[in-house]
Design a protein around this nucleic acid. Structure first.
Lengths: 187, 187
DNA sequence: GTCTCAAATGTCATACTTGTAATATGAAGC
DNA sequence: GCTTCATATTACAAGTATGACATTTGAGAC
């Protein structure tokens, strides 16, 4: 549970420490007090919410949605290695899940900006996964890139089911990076 | 009777260990000393009371929670229906996941108190799931009941891997409810 | 433009809290 | 026995809250 002190916030916002305390007292910034003399602490998430609600710049290290966090979900290690190498080289922060359980857990735990999804994993229906993602509030905004060797008509079905993009195997490195880059710059 | 060390509390509150000791010395935080060198210990309930009385954030894993939320993970609808009917009748609030992705996602989304886990789901290695749960901070405290038709030796392996209890199929209704009840009242 | 006023923010001194570093000692594991 | 790790202790450094007061900022009014 990472917290910030008034001094740290003062430096980040380039204001006086006294001012930060007043923000907290006034209720503009949510915080709490330590038992001792009542030193203030602010949860990082509350601080970021404060910054955003006032259109203040959010320092990159606290930006929650750095558009470059990607989760690769595929059961074949050869594929995950390939994709993660390509995307890492392109500057993305890549995490890998090799089964459905890890995939679902990491998606909700880390909230990556984008996920690459194999449509045909053993014991896992890709369309069902797509549907679950789109109907779950916490992750419905996740960009989904379907990577599959299935036919074009199946891939179109994936687009209908809510995929943001599809990539037919085999693919060229640049096709993948272009696609991910486009989705990352979308908003 | 779960207790916390000063180091653990320091991490949770994001303060220095020295500070935690001062809180205890000053009487802000109720604790007691072990005989040896006088290492401090704090009851979880006292710690939570301390947090609440100072309006400090309480980490979800210590928040007073209803011990009756259960997630059933199994790919066979017949099994999920059976288990969820039994547990619902026994008064538990039951959610169901029929594939690994849903299982992982719902575990991290809803943080149920207990999960029933099928060891042999298609495309999903139950031992790997167990390992993932035990090594992921947010959910490592989840009670895991393995339900399987596998041999006793495999079930023992599951216990070694971190399962809190195992249930060999076929089982009687009461075996399941007894087991879940025992784990729910464990702490 | 500039005057005025009010609100917000900065400055400073003081007292208290918390962090840091080094060291010593018990706890836990082998 | 030994090693490794976490914790307690000490003394000191650094950070923070508070109050009183100064300064800046922005919005009207003229």
């Amino acid at each position: 549970m990472k917290t910030l002190t008034t001094g740290e916030i003062a430096k980040i916002c380039d204001v006086n420490l006294r001012t930060v305390i007043r923000w907290i007292e006034r209720g503009d910034l949510k915080g709490f007090k330590l038992p001792g003399r009542g030193n203030n602490r602010v949860l990082v998430e509350d601080f970021v919410a404060f910054l955003e609600s006032h259109n203040m710049p959010v320092p990159p290290e606290y930006a929650p949605k750095s558009n470059n966090r990607v989760l690769v979900l595929d059961d074949e290690p050869a594929i995950t290695r390939l994709i993660s190498r390509i995307l890492r080289t392109a500057g993305y922060s890549v995490d890998v899940a090799t089964d459905g359980f890890q995939g679902g857990a990491k998606l909700l735990q880390d909230r990556p900006y984008l996920i690459t999804l194999d449509l045909s994993m053993p014991g896992l229906d890709g369309f069902q996964v797509l549907d679950f993602i789109r109907s779950t509030e916490e992750i419905k905004h996740t960009k989904v890139v379907v990577v599959s060797a299935l036919s074009t008509s199946e891939l179109n079905r994936a687009l209908d089911a809510g995929a943001d993009a599809v990539l037919q195997k085999p693919f060229k490195n640049q096709e993948l990076t272009d696609m991910v880059a486009q989705l990352s710059h979308a908003e």
